[in-house]
Design a protein around this nucleic acid. Structure first.
Lengths: 255, 255
DNA sequence: CGATGGTTTGACATCGGTCAACGCAGGTGG
DNA sequence: CCACCTGCGTTGACCGATGTCAAACCATCG
């Protein structure tokens, strides 16, 4: 279980050792080992639990560290002048926050805990210092950012789909896959975000999302009880990801 | 002028010297100088012109180099099983292609020239080799990818806006800014992409985009003649980027 | 000159957004 | 322990923006 987060006691236990962390393969230490791993380990600090609705960083905050989700979950979002927000992502254990801050050396978005969560803090200057001496870490760092780009591209593809139904289906499918990766039952989703947040992420309104959940339930694809969603029929879900459409999809030129 | 691309003759001239390239500040060499610049320069190959509709890479192509647009422009897009595509970006001179391939060591999307274009090819293994010895280049490389993440986030924010009008306005505004950065008149846009491609990028259909152009014209914001768009009123355009709305924008919880 | 493909325009249909009301769950205080 | 309150979630009725379909226009190219 990734969401162990007991009382304050285990801060000490949380700290120490990427080596023993279940998320290792997904995280920066992947592909490095032994002595190098210890050096990375040394700079990683773990912070005390972040409560629901608390933020890890805000736009404009000077960038000095990357954060890896250890337990719990986060959302990242930007807010414009009119106070409208766009949620950029939901982040599960093993995922890295703050990558978009490297360029400007300031955070570009807000990261907020959706539930009580813990993170590892990786001071960036020290990280890149070590990366310079450990080529594997260097490559892994680039890989991790590149993966972030891939993630955003998937989000983009989803937003491009004009039918709400497909968007939600794609989201659920992809969330299920992510659950699999962190060794949780891919059929049993516990959505850490509110319907509002989910709707915003998908570029829809709450009511639409709500109606879709009921519809999916009626179709026998899901069993929904508030935040608890069980996927009953993966094949149907898969099918829902790619219904109807030809509108803006196929670009005219190529037949 | 960024789009010089004369006859085959100047391939040789195109080659050689990041030092003398007008795009330097936007590109990998930014922040490195002197001898280090020459080392980077040495590995950069420039390829012969790419014709309109020709591809630079396809999904699955083994990744061995990044490409920097020197002149002309590209689109990148992904295509799913049903042949529907989603355009991920349009790329002007100075922008870097292939960053999403680092993670899987295979390209994830297609890069296709929208008009005759030239690129610099930067072999990735050699680049990271040099980056290991030149910390500034190392940091610049990370910065460049991080900037790509920022770019995608902007695209995402735009796709999240539910009104077509805002999407197009935001696109035009941002394109204008990019023109400014490469020293072209920010009021005089020459859209290298078709209406279909633009619509796809924005998550809309052609007809909607077409109608919007006419509407913007009637409002006195633009003067449109096919691919040539002149921005007549920046203030109005700016205003159009943020009309109406509160729906999915403001997340309920925070008042 | 006609063919081709991109672009525009119009008429119409519909998905999903808006507004409004209600239900349900969890938290707080009596 | 219950009653109320608050905020999230669901449902329904309605309407409008935008997608769909169809046709005409226009530029480019052979």
């Amino acid at each position: 279980m990734a969401t162990d987060a007991g009382p304050v006691l285990d801060i000490v236990r949380l700290r120490r050792s990427c080596a023993s962390c279940g998320l290792q393969q997904l995280c920066l230490p992947a592909a490095i080992a032994g002595d190098d791993l210890r050096r990375l380990d040394d700079i990683v600090q773990s912070k005390r639990p972040i409560d629901r609705a608390q933020t890890l960083f805000l736009p404009g905050t000077p960038f000095h560290a990357l954060y890896v989700v250890r337990s719990g979950s986060f959302k990242t979002f930007v807010t414009n002048e009119q106070g409208e927000t766009q949620i950029l992502g939901f982040h599960l254990p093993g995922e890295i926050l703050g990558l978009d801050a490297i360029s400007a050396e300031r955070h570009q978005c807000t990261a907020e805990a959706l539930e009580r969560a813990t993170v590892c803090e990786v001071p960036f200057s020290r990280l890149s210092h070590i990366a310079q001496q450990v080529p594997d870490l260097q490559r892994q760092l680039l890989r991790v950012i590149s993966r972030e780009v891939m993630r955003d591209h998937e989000h983009l593809v989803m937003m491009g789909r004009r039918h709400a139904q497909e968007r939600l289906a794609i989201f659920l499918k992809s969330l299920s896959e992510r659950y699999g990766r962190i060794k949780r039952d891919p059929a049993l989703l516990t959505l850490p975000m509110s319907r509002y947040e989910l709707a915003n992420y998908l570029g829809l309104v709450v009511e639409t999302v709500s109606r879709l959940f009921t519809r999916f339930q009626q179709m026998g694809v899901l069993e929904v009880r508030r935040k608890n969603v069980r996927i009953l029929d993966f094949a149907k879900l898969e099918a829902l990801c790619a219904e109807q459409h030809e509108g803006s999809g196929a670009v005219a030129r190529e037949a």
